[in-house]
């Protein structure tokens, strides 16, 4: 059977990993390739690189990073952040990324999901959804632009829509839980998991290894993503996997 995937996420700005990473003695804590290699050695099943460069030069540098990562690592990786056209997708995939992740652009231009899926295959089109609970609709609302802009979309409707459009996977981040370290948003994940038949990656809120056990045992998420708890050495991919194994979750 498929194993549950653990996915560390790295924020990259102008070709460097930002958000200080402290977990190991390496030569250069900002080098994406070195950090990716460390996670690979810890047993990461996949990696996500989020490009947060604001400039055109920064984006071009990202392509170089992708090329170098692809030349070094033997595990799959996704690149997201600022991808707004078929051309952007092509450039990232040609440089060696396995998947691209669309967020704001998918809301602005949903046909981009379909075009990408037709051109490159659904398996390499991830739609990242940022959602926050909204009392007024009694459910979670979808946000774009790093959580700054509210959309009209309710999260389950949007999730179904992106799958119909050709998304091969959903990366679902809880804005309510993000950074709280109190665990994944099981309610949100359960709601979305029930309405789509593509893999769902849980994101936002991981604070310790037990939180991963919960998200797999209670929601049956396909994968779980985290950034800071891995970066700040609060736990490691290895420790999370040991904990999962002890609790009967099938991991690699």
């Amino acid at each position: 059977m498929l194993t549950k995937r653990i996915i560390p996420c790295l924020d990259v700005k102008d070709g460097r990993v930002v958000k200080g990473i402290q977990f190991v003695q390496i030569r250069d804590a900002g080098d994406p390739v070195e950090l990716a290699t460390v996670y690979d050695e810890q047993g990461a099943d996949e990696l996500v690189f989020l490009d947060i460069s604001a400039s055109h030069e920064g984006r071009k540098t990202m392509i170089e990073v992708v090329r170098e990562v692809a030349g070094t690592l033997a595990i799959p990786f996704t690149v997201g952040g600022g991808i707004g056209s078929l051309e952007d997708m092509r450039a990232i995939l040609r440089a060696g990324a396995d998947k691209v992740s669309l967020n704001s652009a998918a809301v602005r231009k949903p046909e981009l999901i379909t075009e990408g899926s037709n051109f490159f295959g659904a398996q390499c089109i991830v739609v990242a959804i940022d959602a926050r609970f909204d009392e007024s609709i009694g459910s979670w609302r979808v946000y774009t632009h790093g959580g700054r802009n509210a959309t009209e979309w309710e999260v389950c409707d949007w999730a179904k829509h992106v799958v119909e459009r050709g998304a091969g996977e959903i990366l679902l981040t809880s804005m309510d839980q993000d950074g709280e370290k109190t665990g994944f948003d099981l309610g949100l994940l359960k709601a979305v998991q029930q309405v789509v038949d593509v893999p769902v990656i849980a994101s936002g809120g991981a604070g310790n290894a037990e939180h991963f056990v919960d998200v797999f045992n209670e929601v049956d998420a396909d994968a779980a993503l985290a950034a800071s708890i891995f970066h700040y050495k609060e736990t490691s991919v290895q420790k999370v996997k040991e904990e999962l194994r002890e609790n009967g979750v099938h991991v690699r």
């Binding site: 059977m1 498929l2 194993t3 099943d45 659904a122 398996q123 091969g168 996977e169 893999p199 396909d222």
Partner: peptide, 19 residues
């Protein structure tokens, strides 16, 4: 098909690490 002989649901594509 997205399900096994007992009717259990399986996601398609088969994506991830398998033994």
């Amino acid at each position: 098909t997205g399900k096994d002989a007992d009717g259990n649901r399986f996601k398609v594509p088969h994506m991830g690490w398998n033994h």
